[in-house]
Nucleic acid binder design. Structure first.
Lengths: 208, 208
DNA sequence: CACCCTACTGACCATGCGGTCAGTGACGCG
DNA sequence: CGCGTCACTGACCGCATGGTCAGTAGGGTG
């Protein structure tokens, strides 16, 4: 059977609480300045305990990132691959994005650090992985855009570049929401983004 | 007189070559992993020499950043505050942005590190500064957008959010150009960005 | 030539990090 | 109750880094 033994349950619980602690510390210090000691303190265990569950610092950070981003990508995929018009699906994806960052406000620092990795040269193979996840995401979104072009739901243009501009533009607004004390209702920001993306900023002749 | 003594000229030359070395090292390692030793090697001086010109590591990084960003902001201001329609000025600004990153491909790492600073808590007052520069820039662009709304050149919408989406969207494409081995002509990417921003992605009914 | 001045050097130091491992104590079992 | 087990601890180690400073080389001066 695939059922878990008691030890495995305990182990998973520890690993998850360590990841949560790592996330909080990274959120307030940044990846480079997040020390094992502070993560251990945050999780209320001793530093040595971390090494019972993770081989080294890199593995902890990597797993923390992978675990967190899996949730986001599942939410986005569900929204983008559901039924409905492209416009509806994109709206749904934006709502998911905002919802995710509301639930995981600490996450964006980790997300950025992985998109533009830094570190000593011997760690470069690890660095590449986070970046790959980002590119994979981008390619998937570009493919969805391309198919919306096929069905005539949006104009034809270079899908990769378009994916970049939309992703980063939308991300910027969502990140801004995270940093603000009080944000406008999610619906307002989604409307704004959809409006800019779909209709552009040119003055509509039907308006004054 | 405001003329510079020989010593001052020599000093400025050294400081500049140290900043250039710092920029190159930061570009390939990232801010956190850029060591004073490697910067010294890059500039072909000994580590101690750096401390004759800069109080400490933070000062070197800060000055390097300020000096580099001044150039970019001057270029953008010149383009955005020149004569002509808003559309023309925005095109000009995009060209300046692409030109700047072509000349200073190393810079974007430094730019990002300052937008989302990290470090130990006692450095937090320094961290805030780079972020402030970014916000200042954003406010200025938002004001320009607002005045274009006043003159009826573009639709009315929330200028801060719009500035965010446009800035980050355009930046993403420019950064992508930096990472690509061979990019399409600058004109093509500028056209694409302008087209998305002004007309949106909705299918034009006049097209097939 | 002797002297000094000063920009520069690089061995050195203190610090703080990631990672280790002998020790410990709580718990279950006979 | 005695004993073994094992998750957990935290003092410790090696290492790399930022920062220092006594020493040096070389050019200008009298």
């Amino acid at each position: 059977m695939a059922t878990k033994s008691k030890e495995e349950v305990v182990q998973e619980f520890r690993m998850q609480s360590l990841q949560e602690a790592a996330m909080r510390v990274i959120a307030r210090r940044g990846i480079a300045a997040a020390t094992m000691q502070e993560i251990a303190d945050e999780a209320e265990v001793s530093k040595g305990t971390i090494y019972l569950y993770y081989k080294d610092r890199d593995e902890l950070v990597e797993k923390t990132f992978e675990n967190a981003i899996r949730d986001l990508h599942m939410r986005l995929d569900t929204a983008l691959e559901s039924d409905g018009s492209f416009e509806q699906r994109l709206r749904g994806a934006l709502h998911q994005l905002i919802g995710f960052f509301k639930d995981n406000g600490e996450f964006f620092r980790l997300y950025l650090s992985h998109r533009f990795p830094e570190g000593s040269p011997q760690q470069q193979h690890r660095q590449q992985r986070g970046c790959d996840v980002y590119r994979e995401r981008l390619d998937k979104f570009a493919a969805i855009l391309a198919s919306a072009m096929e069905t005539g739901e949006i104009r034809r243009m270079e899908p990769q570049r378009l994916a970049l501009l939309l992703t980063e533009g939308a991300n910027a607004i969502v990140v801004e929401r995270v940093m603000e004390q009080s944000s406008p209702p999610a619906e307002a920001d989604v409307d704004l983004i959809m409006s800019i993306i779909f209709d552009g900023i040119r003055m509509d002749r039907s308006q004054s």
